[in-house]
Design a protein around this nucleic acid. Structure first.
Lengths: 186, 186
DNA sequence: GGTTTGATGACAGTCGCTGACATCGCCTAG
DNA sequence: CTAGGCGATGTCAGCGACTGTCATCAAACC
């Protein structure tokens, strides 16, 4: 009888997604998640800061976007640099459509989870803004461009994740950006 | 000896803002807030859904913005309709600068409160999008325009609230919108 | 093989939050 | 003027999220 099965973190995240899908976020206790993963409640909180975070841990998406923005050619305008970042994000998510759908269904069903999600997106926006500043973009342009990028991403992601057919997320992102240009044009 | 002093809700909100400023959000218990307001913890939760909400209750700002967007001339483009909404919001906040500063200081000092704030702004964006749809704007234009409006507002508000001098918020909002137009112009 | 190290378990405790029921003051019908 | 209705508050018990502390165990290292 081993005490430590490997991948405690992943097992907890998996168990949580399942239980949230079955009974809902509110009706699932942390103790139940831990039990399904073969661990204790205390261990859950050693891996995740709080109950919601189990659905948001990782941060790979943010790293991916930030890297793409940073590596955009120095000659690229701010909006084009962030477009490169969104393209990278779109390509990554495109690979995980089923997981994204399951996760999104759980999130939209609960206000606390929606709250955490908008916070995560705001954090990504802050990281993009910081990266733009390192590229020499001044405020308020950096912050404004970063937030607009997130708006474009949200718009495209929403259509993609609820689509019945298998849509092309990067293409939807490009469409949204085009739509935005038309909307703010005076 | 009266049992009910009037304005329980306002007294709770006032006590909470004071205590959060003195000891911080985390180190203040709901029981302490209620005590300073001359009430009990249970009564606090009858007036506010949770501990954070005491700083965000009201929703007058959202109503103001939505009304201004709805009442914009039918001929106005989406971006101009939301600009009218932001103008109304700016005018309102301009009157309450000191309160806004105190409140913002408390909010930025705590991640949970920042989370609630971005959620509130996202809710306003959703309300703006719905109003635009009633004006005949289709998706994704409605949602995109609404989120961009919030981005412009955040950018201007941030500069205004941390300014040492007494800035003109509506003017800052117009500046931000102008900056945005330049940024997305291809 | 003994020791160190890192992950986990066990347990007690605080606090946010809720449901259920009692109490109190005001308002109105009679 | 009084009895009762009604809304706001108090009281109490309880659940669940989250934390600090210390013991325990497996694996890695010497």
């Amino acid at each position: 009888m081993v005490r430590w099965e490997p991948n405690a973190r992943e097992r907890l995240a998996q168990a949580a997604l399942e239980l949230f899908g079955e009974r809902g976020f509110d009706s699932t206790t942390v103790a139940e998640i831990a039990e399904r993963a073969g661990l204790t409640e205390r261990t859950f909180f050693r891996h995740f800061a709080d109950k919601r975070e189990v659905l948001f841990a990782g941060g790979e998406l943010q790293e991916l976007i930030v890297r793409a923005v940073a590596e955009a050619p120095a000659s690229a305008a701010p909006i084009d640099a962030v477009a490169a970042g969104l393209d990278a994000a779109g390509a990554m998510l495109q690979e995980r459509r089923e997981f994204a759908r399951k996760r999104q269904a759980v999130i939209v069903a609960n206000p606390e989870l929606r709250e955490r999600e908008v916070m995560k997106l705001a954090s990504i926006a802050a990281a993009i803004a910081a990266t733009l500043r390192e590229r020499g973009v001044a405020e308020p342009a950096a912050g404004l461009t970063a937030e607009v990028a997130i708006a474009v991403f949200r718009s495209a992601f929403e259509r993609w994740v609820y689509e019945t057919s298998e849509g092309d997320l990067p293409a939807l992102i490009r469409d949204s950006l085009g739509e935005l240009r038309a909307l703010v044009a005076s």
